[in-house]
């Protein structure tokens, strides 16, 4: 089953686990499984329109899903999915 790695501040919503196994054949399915198991996580990574919040990046192994097939990106049983904060800014 694909493993989803959870960044530190979101672990409070998944019983303090660093990673969670969640079933699914695509990234969207895996994240749907994950957020159904841990509903509190859902409102913190998805907006009201049901889309991933702008500051949330998702990687499959080392690849950003924005440059793959986004939610439809296929995942294998052995794949590692990582939720990664998008951190940027500047004085502008």
């Amino acid at each position: 089953m694909p493993k989803v790695h959870i960044p530190t501040p979101l672990r409070q919503y998944v019983n303090q686990q660093a990673s969670v196994d969640a079933a699914g054949a695509t990234v969207g399915e895996v994240l749907a499984t994950l957020t159904s198991l841990h509903p509190e996580l859902k409102k913190n990574i998805y907006n009201d329109e049901g889309k991933l919040r702008s500051f949330v990046n998702v990687y499959v192994n080392d690849e950003d899903i924005r440059y793959m097939s986004k939610d439809a990106t296929p995942v294998k049983e052995t794949d590692s999915i990582t939720i990664v904060p998008s951190i940027a800014g500047g004085r502008a």
């Binding site: 501040p9 500051f55 904060p85 951190i87 940027a88 800014g89 500047g90 004085r91």
Partner: peptide, 20 residues
Amino acid sequence: HPDEDSYFSATDLKHSWPWY
């Protein structure tokens, strides 16, 4: 912030995560 004060800009706000 080079040659600027230490403040949290609108750009910083837009691109940062809560909790941290």
